[in-house]
């Protein structure tokens, strides 16, 4: 039993953290979030140069990057490319992604079907993450997976609460598509759930850090507000939610990477606890900040919106608890 990242993985974490601290301070993230594009497309090559898109990375390396990039609220289609599309990419796309030339998302909700002949698609795919940022989109249609270029004529932006991770609508009308030798299966979904859980951990950690920093310095009634237990105990509760979510998220990432028999329940447990924990962390952090935490000017609402995005992604907590309940109640045998 060994529950620690390797020293190489910890080095990766340190380098990711350093880069994000240097390049993605709150001010820049806010400016990008408020821009039309929502991100800096020239940064994609930087991420590739640092190896964040390298095909050799495993899920635990992705887990580290997901946590740290959510901590900084990095606006880039890294999550779409690595947490959603990654296992479905063919060699051509994988090489182009690794070189920083392409970025890819995944569309799996909607009414898209393959046209006769099979080299074009028609229909609408909804709620596609980072659709306006990527160069390509993989579309799940008729049981197959098709690659389509995300050109402006097929992409409709949708105003999204989390402006660093916008949803879009894909409108296809006999649009050229290339069928990939891949299919969307449970293992693809498991990956995305594990990495969404790791992102939630990064969000909760930032909420804790913001709440701690503020309550250590803000004074009311002549005292630092962190000395009031009505305040400090909420901060302690953020810490608890963060640690529990982190344990489950890392377990889930490990279970998926090892194809462990418990991978399905692990990702459901992690997704439910880590994303709900991140939402709670942000809500308590906002409360601890008082009025300033409720303003558009403060960065907290951006984390709150990411936390809610993650909570909504691929099933709310209750959907995952229903899956867990089925696993432990409806079949005989070991449940714990």
């Amino acid at each position: 039993m060994d529950f620690a990242f390797s020293s190489e993985q910890e080095q990766l974490r340190a380098s990711v953290r350093d880069y994000l601290r240097d390049r993605y301070g709150d001010e820049r993230v806010v400016a990008l979030a408020e821009s039309d594009a929502g991100w800096d497309p020239s940064s994609w090559r930087e991420l590739a140069d640092m190896g964040w898109l390298d095909p050799s990375l495993g899920l635990l390396e992705h887990a580290v990057i997901a946590e740290e990039s959510a901590y900084a609220l990095l606006p880039a289609p890294w999550f779409a490319t690595v947490a959603l599309a990654w296992p479905l990419l063919d060699e051509q796309l994988r090489d182009a992604v690794a070189a920083g030339e392409r970025s890819v998302t995944l569309a799996r909700h909607g009414s898209v079907t393959a046209d006769a002949g099979g080299d074009t698609l028609t229909g609408v795919a909804t709620l596609v993450p980072d659709l306006t940022s990527v160069t390509d989109v993989l579309v799940v249609a008729d049981g197959g997976v098709y690659a389509v270029e995300a050109t402006p004529d097929v992409v409709v932006p949708r105003s999204t609460m989390d402006r660093t991770r916008r949803l879009g609508e894909l409108r296809l009308d006999r649009t050229p598509a290339r069928r990939l030798d891949a299919s969307f299966g449970p293992e693809v979904r498991r990956r995305s759930l594990a990495l969404a859980s790791c992102e939630a951990v990064g969000v909760a950690q930032r909420a804790l850090d913001l709440a701690a920093a503020y309550t250590k310095t803000r004074e009311q009634f002549g005292r630092v507000i962190g000395t009031y237990q009505a305040v400090s105990h909420k901060v302690a509760d953020i810490f608890v939610a963060l640690q529990l979510g982190r344990s489950l998220a890392y377990w889930a990432a490990w279970a998926v990477s090892e194809d462990d028999p418990q991978a399905d329940v692990a990702v459901s447990a992690a997704k439910s606890a880590a994303t709900e924990g991140a939402v709670l962390a942000c809500e308590y952090a906002i409360q601890a900040h008082g009025g300033i935490g409720f303003t558009y000017e403060h960065v907290l609402h951006r984390y709150y919106k990411r936390a809610q995005w993650l909570e909504a992604f691929e099933g709310y907590g209750r959907d995952h608890r229903a899956a867990v309940a089925a696993a432990i109640l409806d079949s005989e045998g070991a449940v714990a």
């Binding site: 039993m1 529950f3 529990l244 979510g245 489950l248 608890r321 229903a322 309940a325 432990i328």
Partner: peptide, 22 residues
């Protein structure tokens, strides 16, 4: 069923937090 699943999740959270501490 939701509440029972939550207890199971809370158990796993305790277990793996303990492993991490260990």
């Amino acid at each position: 069923r939701d509440q029972i699943a939550q207890q199971w999740i809370d158990l796993q959270a305790l277990r793996f937090t303990n492993y991490r501490s260990l």
